[in-house]
Amino acid sequence: MATAQAAPTRSTINLKGSTKIVTEFFSYAVNSILFQRAVYPPEDFSMVKKYGLNMLVTNDDGLKTYISKVISQLSEWLLGNQVSKLVLAIVSKESRETLERWQFDIQNTASDESSQNSEKQNKPKTEKEIHSEIQAIIRQITASVTFLPMIDEPCAFNILIYTSDTEEAKTMQVSDSWVDADPHLIQSDKTEQVRLRSFDTSVHKVEALVAYRVGEEEE
């Protein structure tokens, strides 16, 4: 017996969908930063079309595996509302000094009571609107090479995940592949920072910021 059911509306994004959007954004953002900041050689990257832009994605199998592992774990923690921040730190191989910190603050607006009231008033965003916001951030990341200092030494990078300030996050059990990390601070007298755009999925709000070490000759 056929029952007439209304098709589910796609206007509202749930936690799972928002987590997927956010993790996908992080994957592309990390690849973009690694390409733009020449942490890996440009031959290792190939072009793909995403968010209406030509995005560069790594072909290095080791790097791909690392990023996919981080992203899958991040997705799990985002679903449990246990993450407050993701940081990509670019570190000099020679001096082991942190040169740049790409910081992405993640705010769960669905669980946050203060923002919940204000969010209720806003109408839910479509995926296209979210993609346009993400596109703006990616464009800013691409344009950041104009103001960021040149990196003329061999570098490595690390992805740090900051837990949220909750009791669950404090006592959460992590797998053996994850350990407590050094926060890779930049020296306070040599830091400058630029706040980038943000995007909002109506469940998660991601705010981007880049802090970088300024050389002595540039001061």
């Binding site: 592992k69 981080v70 730190a89 910190r101 995940i161 994850w178 407590d180 601070l185």
Partner: peptide, 23 residues
């Protein structure tokens, strides 16, 4: 500025990294 350079409340927040990372 401090938060930008990476300082955080180490009492309440944990910083995690993968054991096998590029660095």
């Amino acid at each position: 500025h401090k938060v930008g350079r990476g300082e955080f409340n180490c009492k309440n927040i944990r910083v995690l990294e993968m054991r096998d990372n590029p660095i």
